[in-house]
Deep mutational scan, measured.
Amino acid sequence: MKTQEELTEIVRDHFSDMGEAATLYVQVYESSLESLVGGVIFEDGRHYTFVYENEDLVYE
């Protein structure tokens, strides 16, 4: 099982292909040891929320 830090790095790496991230945040109260819930805000103003669970990243 991966730590939240490892899950955060996986998510950060995925979003790095989409541009320069200004902020990546984790909603600790919705996350667990198995999943990471949060969002990313890019330098150009785009904002996505995400759920990373079971090696699957879903974002909108």
Rank of each mutant, 00 (worst) to 15 (best):
D13N: 14
V58A: 07
E60M: 12
E55Y: 10
R12D: 01
S31G: 09
S32T: 09
E30N: 14
M1D: 04
E20C: 14
R46P: 01
E5I: 08
D56K: 15
Q4L: 15
M1E: 06
E53G: 05
E5N: 07
Y59N: 02
H14S: 05
S32P: 04
A22K: 13
A21H: 11
G45A: 02
T8K: 08
V26W: 07
Q27M: 14
Y59L: 11
F15S: 01
S31M: 11
S31W: 13
E60L: 11
E6N: 05
D56Q: 15
L36I: 11
V26T: 01
T23W: 14
E20I: 14
L7F: 03
Y25R: 04
I10M: 08
Q4E: 07
S31I: 11
S31V: 10
V58Q: 10
E6D: 06
D44S: 03
G45Y: 06
D17N: 14
S32H: 10
L57F: 07
Y29F: 10
I41P: 00
D44Y: 09
E55P: 04
V58M: 08
E30P: 04
E30K: 09
E55K: 11
S31A: 13
Y25T: 05
E5H: 07
I41K: 04
V28C: 15
Q27L: 15
T8M: 15
V37C: 11
E60P: 04
V11I: 10
T49D: 00
F42A: 00
G39I: 14
D44H: 02
I10H: 04
E43K: 13
K2I: 08
E20D: 09
T3G: 05
V11D: 01
E6I: 08
L33F: 09
V11H: 01
E34C: 13
E55G: 15
M1L: 11
M18Q: 05
V37R: 13
D56I: 15
V51A: 05
D44P: 02
E9N: 11
I10S: 03
S35Y: 15
F50V: 00
Y59G: 03
E43N: 10
Q4I: 14
V26D: 01
A22P: 10
F50K: 00
E9I: 11
F50Y: 02
T8R: 08
L33A: 10
E34I: 09
G39P: 00
I41E: 02
Q4D: 04
F15P: 02
F42M: 06
K2A: 04
V26C: 11
T49P: 00
S16P: 05
L36E: 00
